[in-house]
Design a protein around this nucleic acid. Structure first.
Lengths: 195, 195, 195, 195
DNA sequence: CATGAATGAGAGTTCATTCAT
DNA sequence: GATGAATGAACTCTCATTCAT
């Protein structure tokens, strides 16, 4: 019970402050618990953060996998995937902003996290974006998508989704998400140019 | 002269470590100067960071403004703008990653920076993305671009550009930038779907 | 039964880590019991340590008393006493190193232990060394030992015994102890000078 | 100047409390300085302690080396060495008690210090006791000392010296030291047995 | 009796900032 | 203008002890 209180509080504080500026003191104040309790459940601040990410990710990753396995048309799958991404990022915008920053994209020298931890995080991203890649690849094979660099294209799509969320262009309501998903899919698939 | 040494060193250290993990001690070690000297030129760490951003931005913003004012076809202007963006972000990837993170996109309560400072940063972004918007708007008016939400479209284009840089998909060489600019423009304009 | 498990574990951990670095967590892990159980049997860490010392001391003190009461020649008694000391300290080297340190020899202001506890420990030492003194005194009265300050001489003998153990000059085997006892007695009685 | 104040305060606090119980807070209170200042001069608590030991040792070691090099009779040298040892340990009793404890004599698993640091300390001890060994060896070669295990004999002599100090049998006055040195030398050389 | 979740005082350490020289 | 010694608030983490079950 305390464990969950701590996780909830940590989620809030990490989201608000980022990893570095978040303090254990603030987390325990919000969780209404003692400092030692945090360290009974989590080895350290870093692992507390990781637990948060892991717990929030797993459902999302499962949903995404499910979509990839469906027998649907690629274009339809893409739209579904975009929607699932939006739902997840809308719900976890702040924490994932922090996570993405702390990972530093590539192999950067300094970060709050150990290299081992960073690798774990990166694998999660690579995995989810990889699913987008697979769908695109499938689309190319079926002639629905133009041949292109699916790795970059998937990253592009991903970056747009995340930006829409981070910029607050998408709200929490289902219809807001749906509308956004349609816009994103439309431009991603057909571009902005007039024919 | 000392001032410039400090700025150069600060650029390196902030880029490597991020805002929080960067220490004044490391900056002065690299700048080969004394700690007090930093505080003679800059009121504090935050303002040192801001100065850095301001100095690096201005040339870029000028270039972008120039493109916007050209008498060229919108599609051509878009490609040019993409190139200028890429050039700038490739050169300043690490510092801008830090900056974008610390700004926290919207009106978030806590950050390393004061609200006043954050507003200044945001205005810079709004301004550069605004130029993209204007070009798109011009394109719509001239019938080259499909009617769409230019605000969001510009942000989408921007996010893809930045992602390409942060993911290391674009190198520092001119031709790498040119190739990337073409790919981005191609998909942004015509989408990935087969016709 | 739990009580004995705790004592055994505590002995091991205190010996390995010293008083301060030993943690109750480590003790209960080794004793395979719960944290509360420790506090059912012992009022606190300090008293647990004391119990350990008391239990291990009593047999040794009894043996030493027995030797003192024998009707033997003083020189012979001295050798026997040295052997008993060696046996005891070899068996309890690590814990007694910790104990001797935490006592701080004299009336020092600060220690891990309360003054009352420290007094108890000191009395045990004074008592065992006192037996050595008595044997020496007996030797002087019988003309086997040169008149000298028996208090200091007994401490000197004691310190050499302990040093031999702490420096690892004496092993656990009976013959190693016997050899060491002979060397110590030889030099203590006759000195290192050539005649 | 602050550096010296910190060293003096640290000396007092480490001597009184031992390494673990000594706190940086107490040291700075006594040194009348700020916490950060300590870390400007010393990397950490461990290195502060080491600096203390190093500074206090060097004069003593030099004196001891000087005696070893004298052209004097071995027995005379032994007495001189004993005196120098007593002077040093009387002056530094408390800190050296702490040091000797934290070293844990041999290769013990856990200690406050890193293995590397422990090795440095041990070398200092080995060195000073080694000088005693050399003097004894010289004595044997010149026929003044009975053939014996000089390594152990030197350790025995050392342990007695230290014990005399730790037990408060020796005061700070020169004559107290002289008297003690004579008693120690007398028994070490000629034993306690009557002839 | 046995347990272990909960606790918080207190530890060592970092680092932006000040100010006398 | 240039300096760096001095500072202390703030940080993460430890661990003996309590107490409800």
């Amino acid at each position: 019970m305390k464990r969950q209180q701590i996780l909830d509080a940590a989620y809030t504080v990490f989201s608000r402050k980022g990893y570095h500026r978040a303090t254990v003191d603030e987390i325990i104040a919000l969780a209404d618990t003692g400092k030692g309790t945090v360290y009974n459940y989590f080895v350290n601040k870093e692992q507390l953060f990781y637990t948060l990410v892991k717990e929030r990710s797993s459902k999302f990753e499962a949903e995404l996998n499910a979509i990839a396995s469906l027998h649907e048309l690629p274009l339809s799958k893409i739209k579904m995937a975009i929607k699932v991404f939006l739902e997840f990022y809308v719900a976890n915008a702040d924490l994932w902003r922090v996570l993405m920053y702390e990972m530093r994209g590539l192999g950067h020298e300094d970060s709050s996290f150990t290299e081992a931890q960073r690798k774990k995080y990166r694998e999660r991203f690579v995995h989810t974006i990889g699913i987008l890649e697979n769908i695109l690849q499938e689309g190319i094979e079926q002639g629905a998508i133009r041949p292109c660099d699916v790795h970059k294209a998937a990253h592009g799509l991903f970056s747009v989704i995340v930006m829409m969320v981070f910029q607050g262009f998408v709200g929490e309501q289902q219809d807001s998400i749906e509308t956004a998903a349609n816009s994103i899919a439309d431009i991603f698939l057909y571009g902005v140019a007039e024919r």
